[in-house]
């Protein structure tokens, strides 16, 4: 079942992706058919089953709480689309 325009618009807003009106309908259909298809997971009995979190192969590790990286401000800023001196710039967010 196709997702309605309101739902698609709400999800797009959550994902911060601007959509054109004509995209909303097509995406609603595509997303609806994918969601319908994954509904088949409802038939699996998962009573008492833990969710898989990682493969359980990597051991959690601790390291010394010490600086291991840094002092590379220009590298960090080197791909900034817009910057002012040592700062990233953003549109004004506080009135």
């Amino acid at each position: 079942m196709s997702l309605d325009a309101k739902t698609v618009t709400r999800i797009a807003r959550l994902a911060r992706i601007g959509l054109k009106p004509e995209e909303v309908e097509t995406l609603g259909q595509d997303m609806g058919s994918i969601i319908d298809w994954v509904e088949q997971l409802k038939e699996v009995d998962v009573t008492g089953i833990d969710p898989m979190i990682g493969t359980g192969l990597a051991k959690p590790r601790l390291r010394e709480d010490a600086v291991t990286d840094g002092d590379c401000r220009d590298k960090v800023l080197s791909n900034a689309p817009e910057r002012e001196g040592p700062f990233f710039t953003v549109p004004k967010v506080v009135e």
Binding site: I17, G18, A80, P81, F88, P91, V93
Partner: peptide, 22 residues
Amino acid sequence: GLRFGERVSAPSLDGLYEASRA
């Protein structure tokens, strides 16, 4: 659209996110 990658300017921060990602 802030720290790296393509940025499409917009008057608000959310507008910038939405336009850049679109």
